Computed example of a mutant assay.
Amino acid sequence: MELRQLHHFVAAARMEHFTRAARKLNVAQSALSASIRALEDELSAQLFVRTTRKVRLTASGQAFLSKAEKVLFSVEEARDAVRAVEQGQAGRLTIGSVQSLPAFLQLPTVLAKFHGLYSQVEISLVQASALNLLDKLERGELDLAFLPAFDARRGIETRLVACEELVLVCSRQANFFSGDAVDLQQLTAVPFVDFENDLGTRTLIDRAFADALVDRRVIFEVSDLGTLLNLVEQKLGVALVPQSVARSRQDTLKSYVVSDVDLCWEIVVASRGQMSRTASIAQFLDLLPMDGLG
């Protein structure tokens, strides 16, 4: 049984005339008649009573008509659903993000804007470490992921969305340093507050100290930015944070430029290759400015 046969049958049933039905469907009457005969043979039932002037449904035809129309309606619904997804008007978009994104990256603002434009697209957001996000992205569990820049992975594309210099902060009541700049060697003797491994800026900072062959002492490891800043404000250690974060706490924290190393926290949005890119993914990416969010 083919959809073409159902279309032929419904048209003939509603118009009660094979010739007019064929004309409406733009097919030859002989083709329509043959299609309906094949349908009757498959069902082992006569669907029409045929006369020279018109046709009318048999009892079996009446029963089959309602089912055939439901099938055609469901098929059209399915086509509409696929069309909406292909055009980015419906579907699902799953986004991942590292925890404790800094203030300069306003992801919720972009999510709200996207929802306002494409309200029928279901958006979900998950937070995890950068490594977990990449694994989920590769397995197809995420469409997009916001995370610090990373070494290239096959099949994963990235786009820079934000970059900000890291500065050292400490409590205004602390007396760790003088002046307004420090170098990495000065930081070997001070206690650090930092994120847990693979969270936030931890990997970037660890790599900078390792490349400079300088040791540091991390005494507090946390999973969120608020706790990190609160510990620093209590004079329990120093931390390296984006400039915008330091500015947001300038009443309680002093900041210092790190003079001997370029510490820029680059945030990228990662996605699988073009073959996996849906219209919704493309539309979301179009909302992102090239140099940051907000």
Results as ranks from 00 to 15, higher is better:
His7Met: 06
His7Phe: 13
Phe9Glu: 07
Ala11Cys: 10
Ala11Arg: 01
Ala13Thr: 07
Ala13Asp: 03
Glu16Asn: 15
Ala21Trp: 06
Arg23Gln: 15
Lys24Val: 14
Val27His: 11
Gln29Val: 14
Ser33Val: 15
Ser33Met: 14
Ala34Met: 14
Ala34Ile: 10
Asp41Gly: 08
Glu42Tyr: 12
Leu43Asn: 03
Ala45Arg: 15
Gln46Cys: 09
Val49His: 15
Thr51Ile: 08
Thr52Arg: 15
Arg53Glu: 14
Arg53His: 13
Gly61Ser: 10
Ala63Asn: 11
Glu69Asn: 02
Lys70Val: 12
Lys70Phe: 08
Ser74Ala: 13
Val75Tyr: 13
Glu76Trp: 04
Arg83His: 06
Glu86Trp: 00
Arg92Phe: 04
Ser100Leu: 00
Ala103Pro: 06
Leu105Ile: 12
Leu107Gln: 06
Leu107Val: 11
Pro108Gly: 00
Val110Asn: 01
Phe114Thr: 05
His115Thr: 14
His115Tyr: 12
Ser119Leu: 00
Val121Tyr: 02
Gln127Thr: 09
Asp135Ile: 08
Glu141Asp: 12
Asp143Trp: 00
Leu144Glu: 07
Leu147Ile: 10
Pro148Asp: 02
Ile156Gln: 05
Glu157Val: 15
Thr158Lys: 14
Val161Glu: 12
Leu168Pro: 04
Ser171Tyr: 02
Gln173Met: 06
Ala174Tyr: 02
Asn175Cys: 08
Ser178Arg: 14
Gly179Thr: 10
Gly200Gln: 08
Asp206Ile: 00
Phe209Val: 06
Val214Pro: 05
Arg217Cys: 10
Asp224Tyr: 03
Asp224Ala: 03
Gly226Asp: 14
Thr227Glu: 13
Gln234Asn: 06
Leu236His: 03
Asp251Val: 05
Lys254Pro: 00
Ser255Ala: 11
Tyr256Arg: 00
Asp260Glu: 03
Val261Trp: 03
Asp262Ala: 09
Trp265Cys: 04
Gly273Asn: 14
Gly273Asp: 13
Gly273Arg: 11
Phe284Ala: 09
Leu285Trp: 01
Leu287Val: 00
